[in-house]
Design a protein around this nucleic acid. Structure first.
Lengths: 206, 206
DNA sequence: TAGATTGTTAATCGATTAACAATC
DNA sequence: TAGATTGTTAATCGATTAACAATC
């Protein structure tokens, strides 16, 4: 098995390879990529080696081939559709975030408990009542539920998502969720990064 | 020195302690906290031990005291003001994100290069021209620059922030920034989490 | 004192890096 | 073939966990 951190570096690899591809660069060495990404070349070779012998000894990595492989590893070869639950500021921002589309991820619909938000279109997206989650999941073929709701209701909403058949949750609420073990939860705590900065500032300047 | 991961767990400790505090619970054991946070009690004791002998043997941790200590460690004892550069969807969402305020962080102003956005108030916040960065930094006492701009201009904007005197950057653009070594950059890549999920889905279901 | 729980040490586990044989 | 760079092994580094002496 490979380190968890390996997968977390793949999005960055994907981006620099996309760039090389646009520049019509056909081959790239681990050394060259390493410089661009900001890791060691050893790290890159090791990360890639977990998924097979993807390079050419003496030459480097075929950009197009490696790009295809990484897309496959990250599940980007198939379009993944997301349901955003919680049409607040964060939910709406994610709905319009171009970074998702650039990585083959598509927000298909939003859901909210607040009646006043129903039907509202953000871009060409519709906000549905939370009760429509299961039916719309089937209708729109959504696989991943994004939780952008207050912490106090996160567990309840997670239960509904699980009930609706979602096997993957991307949770922005700072709450540990209890879910059946065939359901994957990815936690996203936006506050960690900024408080890490705040900590460093406090250390250095007080 | 302590593991980098130690600090990243502190925001979660802060939240559960805040909860205990609201419930008027005065003492809490590492075992109890561990259950709530979802880590081992050893981990909690170790994490805290890096910052002194914060507990009471045989009894546990004094909630109010530990809370104060953690606030201090995370630099939350002083209010930190943020400048959001890039008044797009993500920037506006962060400007209105209540999670920041709950952790003693205050967005003081937004900045954008796009003239049509200047003066626009989001909540009671103003969007300033990028050229006003240095003057407003002094005026409003901002310490942290939040970069919510496209990757293509992130380095240029980072340079401006450094020029304006910011010593800490919170960078949402998926680009490695080159900055003087007395400037701290915290990278926030929103795509990593969701692509990790996508990878797991691909593994399990194809 | 007896019971409980911390703080810390040592062992374990996991991830990164250096080095180089394999090979294009 | 000579030069280059991968893929992989072994060494190093770092983080977590288990266990228990210290002590409230």
């Amino acid at each position: 098995m490979f380190p968890k951190a390996t997968i977390s570096r793949f999005p960055m690899y994907f981006r620099v390879l996309t760039e090389y591809n646009h520049q019509n660069i056909a081959l790239v060495s681990s050394e060259e990529m390493a410089r661009k990404v900001g890791v060691t070349s050893s790290q890159i070779r090791k990360d890639l080696s977990y998924f097979g012998s993807l390079g050419i000894r003496g030459a480097g990595y075929d950009v197009a081939y490696l790009l295809a492989k990484i897309k496959e590893i990250l599940g980007m070869d198939k379009k993944r559709r997301l349901a955003i639950i919680g049409a607040g500021k964060l939910g709406l921002a994610l709905a319009g975030y171009t970074g998702l589309k650039q990585h083959g991820l598509e927000v298909a619909a939003l859901f909210d408990i607040d009646q006043s938000k129903w039907g509202t279109t953000s871009g060409q997206l519709t906000v549905f009542p939370l009760t429509a989650l299961a039916s719309q999941k089937e209708e729109l073929g959504m696989e991943i539920a994004v939780l952008t709701v207050p912490g106090a209701v996160a567990q309840t909403v997670a239960n509904m998502a699980v009930q609706a058949g979602f096997k993957a949750l991307w949770n922005f609420a700072p709450v540990r969720l209890v879910v059946p073990k065939n359901v994957i939860v990815q936690y996203e705590d936006l506050v960690v990064g900024i408080l890490t900065l705040s900590h460093h500032l406090a250390r250095k300047f007080g």
